[in-house]
Nucleic acid binder design. Sequence first.
DNA 1: TATTCGATAATTTGATCAAATTTCTTGAAC
DNA 2: GTTCAAGAAATTTGATCAAATTATCGAATA
Lengths: 218, 218
Amino acid sequence: MDADNRKIPSHEVTYTRLRDMILYGHLAPGAPVTIQGLIADLGAGMTPVREAIRRLTAEGALLPQGNRRVAVPELSAEMLDQVAFARLAIEPKLAELAAPRLTPGQIDRLEAIDGAVTRAIESGRLTDYLGANHAFHFALYEAAEAPVLLDLARSLWLRAGPSLRAVIDRYGREPAPDLHREAIAAMRAGDAGALANAIKRDIQQGVDHVRQALAEVS
Amino acid sequence: MDADNRKIPSHEVTYTRLRDMILYGHLAPGAPVTIQGLIADLGAGMTPVREAIRRLTAEGALLPQGNRRVAVPELSAEMLDQVAFARLAIEPKLAELAAPRLTPGQIDRLEAIDGAVTRAIESGRLTDYLGANHAFHFALYEAAEAPVLLDLARSLWLRAGPSLRAVIDRYGREPAPDLHREAIAAMRAGDAGALANAIKRDIQQGVDHVRQALAEVS
DNA sequence: TATTCGATAATTTGATCAAATTTCTTGAAC
DNA sequence: GTTCAAGAAATTTGATCAAATTATCGAATA
């Protein structure tokens, strides 16, 4: 632990921890996020916590409340539609750009990650599933070497994060996401169009699930 | 001045000031942005400056340099293409969403802003032009009531900001942007498709200009 | 219902510590 | 004797923390 602290700055660690809590739906929508609370919970100082909150607020993962507090946003159906629209515009493009740059080794790695996705689903470990699914998509997107689009995708996943909680609470597991396998087949074939299409349908499928779960809650 | 400070927090003021400097190309690409420098230049405290830098870094307007400093990013042609792609995906959609919500009063206001754009072009006041053009687009986009897409658009304009400097240095003025008038006509006609198309071509035109200017510099 | 007071949390400042860059010095090689 | 390079000192800048200030919220009271 101490060895880590010497390399990675405290505000970075704090940011990552808070981000992952949001990204994997560990924080309930509407829950207040206070500086003092995080100082107590994460054992960090005030400045690192402030900066983590500011960064995540700028990325849309936290919402300022007028009175100078921030909270986890409750995604409305309209906002979810906006996230879906943007994801469908950006992420298939990232997949398309990544296609010609993928080495066989990278494809093997992606297949291994997808194996972890499948195993997490079969054993019903939801948090593992969310982590592995995230890893699969971003390992692919990073290969696109398109930092601007990659940042946008990250921001959009963060915005969708809190809503995943509804999915977790409702459904025990997702249905068969064969679309990852389809994507991998397209990678091996070097078919950028087919890869983009598989990713597009994968996103659509995920969004539909969240939309259903949110509709049932209300 | 004091009256303002009682209402708007200092870190917000600092953020806005630094953001506008980037947004209107007042900071040269590659220029280092230091905390100490901003404390001296803006007369703000350390914490507000830190937070402004963090926020803008998270929004992609500033780039971390590995060694714990940040600088104004130098946009490569590839990055510019990514910004253009995302803008063309997001902003016409915002225009389309805004169309049915625009009141006659709002359209009058947009026309007035466009008048300021035209006057700024005719008198050759580049900074005024950039400000008015920004105001025109975002007055329209805000009417869409789509906060997620609006945030994305804001981030994309910030990323394009430093490159505007190249345009400012090269060209004295932009060519006739009749496309704003075309957009206003579409608003009055209530034609969402035509409005989205006009905005799309307006963006395309602006991006082409920046692309040309950057090509000439290198 | 409106108001005041106390508690709690956010904001801001200033000080201190740590890291990185720059400058200066020193020593060796030519 | 000059030049170059390696290393050390000094300066600059970023990171973190603790204290003082200010705003907001909630409860008690009129």
